[in-house]
Nucleic acid binder design. Structure first.
Lengths: 360, 360
DNA sequence: CTGTTAGCGCGTTCAG
DNA sequence: CTGAACGCGCTAACAG
């Protein structure tokens, strides 16, 4: 049915090896022969069979990208930049690799399953994005699988997650986000504005990102003499509510926070999406932002500037990180020294935070 | 290096054919043999070589998804739902296909190039999402490529784009969005509120989505006696500014609109992202929404409800559409009668539209 | 520069 | 129920 190399060879009156050489262009072929072959290719509408090529050459055009959910702009931005980096640039089909996007939904099982699927495909590379599930058994299982992949030549890159435990085997280039530092500066900002009763809505439990951001928050409190041993610090611990990464979590958590302390003057959220839920709950409770309560998010997703007031947040250069992950997974750039590069995060102060108004 | 079927066979003391049968489970194999094989598989950590399997069985585990940009929530939502539908469900690796996401950036060349790449991979299916570029040569080129793909067994699905020209060959199931109807109802809503000087910011030119939405807008005007032959209608035509699908386009277009008519009382935008740019420009111009100017978007992306005021828009069930496209491309559901299903769009009235205040 | 010859790893006849 | 043999379509030595 489909036209094969042999068909082209027959038509051009050469051997299939010659056709292969013309196609791949890494071997000297006489100009006239090449032309005949190319004409035959065009006339027959020949398209190489990638699977056969991959099998014979032991190569692959696939790069796996594991994300929680591409519909979440955090992952969408990373995946998009990554895909654009590894994919087709100027229309030359041969330069590009294909990005296989896998929604894990944050499920450890799905993560492992997709790694298996990608191993089956002998993917050229795999990029794991976003926070890691912090469970020893799972971490070990992932490390094992990654080690096997790496051993068979698949490049591994972690983007937005902490490096694998040292000595766990696979060489994985890591692009880590400075979540802890960003969260710390954010809470320091709130404290500097004069806030003392600060609520915090965390992300889902058992995730590295959640933990790091929370640690940053606590570090800021401690540095300002608001550690848990102090009275105010003890109170601050009461104002930490565990949530998730969705808007609803922010909404619910905010109602809970107001129940615990209706004199709260600021709320920091696990990310921007949660922060919008926080804002909605505050408004529905008749509170003004930032006059009554300041709100801050994390990630600096595009919609943050269009919220009103515009959201104070911590910027992560997600697209840069995604593009860099793409270059790393293709081996186009050398891994950072030590294997891990930490990308800086930047505090973005906007209208949603202000000194406590005390107008209540 | 990597362990192969033959290795497993040797270890289990059977032929490789038997191992293959156990793995695929479509053939009778004695219980005891099966167990021995399965043990060998586990002991050796065997993982099938997808490329070899694909080559031998002439099958593929890949489904291509062409999008303008996954980072755009419009496409992200479709791609996410689609991926989740075709991917791994309950951890059974064998059920799942892999989604190859291709960012075309709206470029016709990239679209064709990715189709070639997917043809190389002998993808099981290809889903083209979002508006089509309306250029005869390009449409024909795409149709030709799709026809070839279809002929070689690749399932074709169009999601959010109009069906291929009749008789152009390939059987492609189409999920079309009722952009025209949605836009029409939206503008009717504005007219009903009392608006007469309505600005419209279009999407990029030469795209089916842009054209359909604009047609809906004009149809609404005409139905209310505001057709281009009338004086008000002629004015309305002056208030159509061509833009793009990004926020900046909305911003710039709005400034232009205000220049053309500073008595404008409503602006409809090509999509929600553009609408936010419109809002920003209005605010920066000292105008209130909706008191001075009403604003409406299109698509009902998640961030719309968190804008303030919340954005009046037209809802497209993107996730449903994406999931359905996934089922279609797997052949799990029959194509709609006639090959094309049009999904309804729904007007979502929120705070950003109101009767003209006349407070200026 | 070009043709010939082997596989790549697996699915699938066809015998037994 | 199982094994032997062939071929999927292509690349990579190895000659010439």
């Amino acid at each position: 049915m489909a036209v094969t190399l042999a068909d082209v060879a027959a038509r051009a009156g050469v051997s299939s090896a010659t056709v292969s050489r013309v196609l791949n262009g890494n071997y000297p072929v006489a100009g006239s022969t090449r032309e005949r072959v190319q004409r035959a290719v065009e006339e027959l509408d020949y398209v190489v069979n990638g699977q056969a090529r991959a099998l014979a050459a032991a190569t692959s055009d696939l790069v796996g990208v594991l994300v929680n959910d591409v519909a979440d702009p955090f992952f969408g931005l990373i995946a998009s930049a990554l895909q654009s980096e590894i994919g087709v640039g100027g229309g030359q089909p041969d330069a590009g690799k294909l990005a296989v996007v896998c929604n894990t939904g944050g499920s450890p099982e799905a993560e492992l399953t997709y790694l298996t699927l990608l191993e089956r495909q002998r993917a050229a590379g795999v990029v794991l994005t976003g926070g890691a599930v912090e469970d020893d058994a799972h971490t070990a299982a992932v490390a094992t699988r990654l080690a096997r992949l790496a051993r068979s030549g698949t490049r591994i890159v972690l983007c937005g997650r902490p490096p694998l435990p040292a000595g766990s085997g696979p060489e994985a280039a890591t692009i880590a986000f400075d979540n802890r530092g960003g969260a710390r500066r954010l809470t320091e900002h709130l404290i500097s504005l004069g806030h003392r009763r600060i609520g915090y809505v965390t992300g889902p439990q058992g995730r590295s990102t959640t933990r790091h951001r929370l640690e940053g928050h606590r570090a800021a409190l401690a540095a300002r003499g608001l550690g848990p041993q102090t009275r105010a610090g003890a109170h601050a611990e009461q104002l930490i509510v565990h949530g998730g990464y969705d808007r609803g979590a922010g909404y619910d958590a905010t109602l809970e926070l107001l129940r615990r302390d209706d004199g709260i003057t600021a709320i920091a959220a696990a990310n921007d999406t949660v922060a919008l839920g926080v804002c909605a709950a505050l408004r529905d409770s008749g509170l003004r932002i930032p006059e009554d309560v300041s709100v801050a998010g994390f990630d600096d997703l595009p919609f943050g500037v269009d919220a009103s007031p515009a959201l104070t947040t911590v910027r992560i250069p997600l697209q840069d990180a995604g593009a860099r992950a793409g270059r790393l997974v293709l081996g186009r750039v050398a891994p950072p020294p030590g294997g891990v590069a930490t990308v800086a995060t930047e505090l973005m102060v906007r209208g949603s935070t202000a000194p406590p108004g005390g107008s209540r």
